[in-house]
Design a protein around this nucleic acid. Structure first.
Lengths: 110, 110
DNA sequence: GTCTAATGCATAAGACAATTATGTATTAGA
DNA sequence: TCTAATACATAATTGTCTTATGCATTAGAC
C-alpha cells in the first residue's frame, strides 16, 4: 500500500481518467478496477469515493444512470463533455507535477 | 503553480531529499532552492515549512545549528543518519507511487 | 534619510480531503 | 445457515496544508 498522504489530491484525477478509459462504470466497479490496475497498491475507500462521485455529479462533470440488477441498485457514472475536458486537464496537470518533482528530487522514473 | 492538493504528502520527502543533496541548509534557503528547482511551480509556505522542520527535528531526523549573521538568526538543518535513511525510503516510496499512478492513469512520463 | 522589499524566524486559526466508523441491504458460496 | 462479497451511503474525526499574523534585520531605491 502507498502511504495515503501521496494519494491526496489524486482521487478526482483517477476517477475521471478511469471513466474516460472505460465509459460508464459504477462505484464498486471503480474501486475494483483501480485495485487491479494498481496491483492492490491503491485501495479506494468508500468514504472517499462516494462523496467525490456525488460532488463531481453535482458539478456537472459526471452523469448517472441507475439500474436495478435483481433487487440491487447499481448507479452507473459517465463523463459529461465538461467532465471529459476536466479529465484531460487533470491528467496533464499530474504529468506536469511528476516532471517538476523528478527535477526537484533529482530522480529517474524510467 | 501546481494545484496544492498534489503537493500534499510530498513536503517531508522534498525537505529530506533537498537536505540530502545539499548538506546543511536553513529554512528560507530551502524555500528558495525548491522555488528555483521547480521553476516557481512549487512555492513552500512558511506555515507549512517550519512546523515540518520542527517535527522532523523532534523525531530525531534532523539536527540543527544556530548561527548569527550580524544580528540575524540562521538555523541550519542537516540530516541525522536516521534522517538520511528516511530520505532514501521516502524517495523510493515516491518513485513507486509514480509508477503505480502511470499504470493506473495509462500515461507516459518520458 | 526614509521607505519598501527581501531576508529570516515563528505560531495560530481555519479549510479541506481523506480515513475510520457505521449503517443498510442483496447475493453467492461454503 | 453463516460468512464474504457486492453495492450503496453518511457522519465523526484526523491530518496536512493554506492563510493570516507577528516580529525583527538588512539591502537598495528614491
Amino acid at each position: 500500500m502507498h502511504p495515503p498522504e501521496l494519494l491526496k489530491g489524486t482521487l478526482q484525477t483517477i476517477i475521471l481518467k478511469i471513466l474516460k478509459d472505460n465509459g460508464k462504470m459504477y462505484g464498486y466497479e471503480i474501486t475494483q478496477r483501480v485495485k487491479e490496475l494498481s496491483a492492490e497498491r491503491i485501495l479506494l475507500t468508500e468514504g472517499a469515493l462516494y462523496p467525490t462521485l456525488h460532488k463531481l455529479e453535482a458539478d456537472g462533470l459526471l452523469q448517472t444512470e441507475t439500474v436495478m440488477i435483481g433487487k440491487r441498485i447499481r448507479k452507473y457514472y459517465s463523463l459529461t463533455s465538461e467532465g471529459s475536458g476536466l479529465a484531460q486537464e487533470r491528467v496533464a496537470e499530474f504529468i506536469d507535477f511528476i516532471k517538476t518533482m523528478t527535477t526537484v528530487l533529482k530522480i529517474q522514473t524510467a
